[in-house]
Design a protein around this nucleic acid. Structure first.
Lengths: 346, 346
DNA sequence: ATTACGTTCCGAAACGTTTTGGAGGATTGA
DNA sequence: TCAATCCTCCAAAACGTTTCGGAACGTAAT
């Protein structure tokens, strides 16, 4: 409630002096600075950031544009964990987060630029948008600094953070190959996701390296949905009963695939090995527990915030960060059964 | 970039007229209004909300003070799902959300009032704070409109949304009693949570109604943590081997309890029935799947936002909302085994 | 005595809006 | 014809900051 004017009046100085005193400028006598600080404390003064931002043209605010802020996101926790990372980093560096709800109609009504300019955010982090999202084009054309999660686009004003999806996928498939599998299916996400392309590349590279021919019909799309993966897996396994292992581009889809397999009377991992991607919470609670590629969603968020804030504060350097993955071996993958009775698990 | 002044210049009118035209006032000729709108479109004008808020003393922004915004929150998804609800409702009503990071040091450095006054939020929703949190006192003393999640405090400027915890707990225990159990333990949360008190009341009421004596030593605290619940459950079951069923104040703790029981050689549900509270994702994926009390976290968030916005817009009426729960029967609870071989499941 | 400089302060403009209190002209009613 | 009313429009103040340019004064150097 108390403004800088009130302080000026009480302390018998000008508003200029109050402002400069409170902001630590050197051209104010220490005596009067103390006096001013005392008055400020007494009046419970807290600066009006709106007014400050208006003149400074900085809001110390970063916008968060999340496309998948829905309740279904509860299964994997991608959005939430990324958010935690962003929040922690932003908090450390003195930035506040403002959430843009971009659900349904709003998306059409206000353009990306309008959203950002109205609220005057210093920069933006975008998560969960698809490659064909109308926002994406706006983002790269706009000159508002922004960081994309899982979309590899880089320019003066846009950077990105992602996991090394190709390497991760390759690790998963390598693991299946090591276990003796040669007929390995893949359940991918959808065309509108960069990560899908990259994970497919990793899958192909692993096969290639093991001198296994890539078979297009071994790869189906499950839209990153458990239910859709279930039906696609069933189709796939029916059409190609020779498949003994399947790599899924997400854990959720792996759970769907396991459901399908079980319904078809295939035991996991004895008849079919399944590997996922993400290492979500459920992966360690499902039965059997799921072998998967771990990606650190919290760190993705944290690094995104670091990257953005570095950009905002004019630090030079590359605007991208690619995080490592790791293989988490659990129960859902196993040595391929051979005619000789070798059924030892790894 | 373009301001109201630019539009005024281009359209040959005053800024007053531009403002009034764009905001739909009636004292501007339709012809000139159209002209102004056209110019605004052409210049890609978007209003500076900072400036507007400064003079209007409304920011159309609601603050979100979340205490448990940590990565562990990934297991139950309380925070995330509440957030989704808030976000959706706020989006519908034209409010944006600003996240206050209140981690560690920040908490001491800035008071609740400072946080809110600086950013000039219209109102606040608080989630995950404990009854002994320093913020809580500030909240009730402050006159900034706010809504508390799961803390039943009501006044002119503060309201709350919560689940009917007592009723929910009673339903769970009623269910166990119906299954024939008489020795029923409880693993509660901790003293700093209102919900713990309420769930304990529900437990007691159910026992009371079934004419079962309440035994203090049958109730232990697991701090809402899976690990802590595991050790407390083990102690409890060791000390009182006659217990055949246990009601846990959260699903996470129920999972911990099941782990403990299994390690002690008790089969679930054959030797021990376990019921939880929350109906988190994991409850339907664990094995055995968990009988639990469902509470709608999304709706908690949604209703919180409704309540707050109603308060902000001056709607009269009560400032509280208590949501219903429902019992979800799954595999972890079963008829108490009797001497006669009746082991039919419900 | 004059100049130069350092310290400490302040007035006023600026940021981009909304809103108050009218002004000017056209229309209407008597 | 005069007054009242309506329709359009506008100048200026206000919101709470920061910052530019300089003022006032004292001290040190010449």
């Amino acid at each position: 409630m108390a403004t800088i004017k009130d302080i000026a009046k009480h302390a018998g100085v000008s508003v200029t002096t109050v402002s400069r005193a409170l902001n630590g400028y050197s051209d104010v006598n220490e005596k009067t600075r103390e006096k001013i600080k005392a008055v400020a404390r007494e009046l419970q003064y807290s600066p009006n950031l709106l007014a400050r931002s208006l003149v400074m043209k900085k809001t110390k605010t970063i916008g968060l544009l999340v496309s998948g802020m829905r309740i279904e996101g509860s299964k994997d926790n991608f959005t939430y964990e990324v958010l935690c990372g962003i929040n922690d980093c932003a908090g450390e560096k003195g930035y506040d987060l403002i959430l843009f709800s971009t659900n349904s109609e709003q998306q059409q009504q206000k353009t990306y630029n309008q959203l950002c300019q109205e609220r005057k955010v210093d920069g933006v982090i975008l998560q969960g948008i698809k490659t064909d999202d109308p926002y994406l084009k706006e983002v790269v054309e706009s000159d508002i600094p922004c960081v994309l999660v899982d979309i590899p686009i880089e320019s003066d004003s846009v950077g990105y953070v992602t996991t090394n999806n190709k390497q991760g996928a390759k690790m998963a498939v390598d693991h299946l190959i090591e276990l003796g599998h040669r007929q390995i299916g893949m359940i991918n996400g959808h065309e509108q996701a960069f990560v899908s392309k990259q994970r497919l590349q990793g899958y192909q590279e692993a096969l290639d390296q093991a001198k296994i021919d890539y078979q297009e019909q071994y790869v189906v799309n499950g839209s990153f949905l458990e239910s859709e993966a279930e039906v696609q897996a069933e189709k796939l396994l029916h059409a190609h009963p020779e498949i003994t292992a399947v790599f899924c581009a997400s854990d959720l889809m792996a759970l769907g695939a396991m459901k399908a397999a079980r319904r078809m009377g295939k035991r996991i991992p004895d008849d079919l090995s399944v590997a996922g991607f993400d290492n979500i919470m459920l992966a360690s609670y499902s039965s059997p527990t799921l072998t998967t590629i771990a990606q650190d969603r919290y760190q993705i968020g944290f690094e995104s915030a670091i990257l953005l804030i570095d950009m905002l504060e004019g630090k030079e350097g590359t605007h991208k960060k690619v995080l490592k993955t790791s293989l988490v071996k659990r129960e859902s993958t196993k040595l391929k059964p051979t005619r000789s009775f070798s059924t030892k698990t790894t």
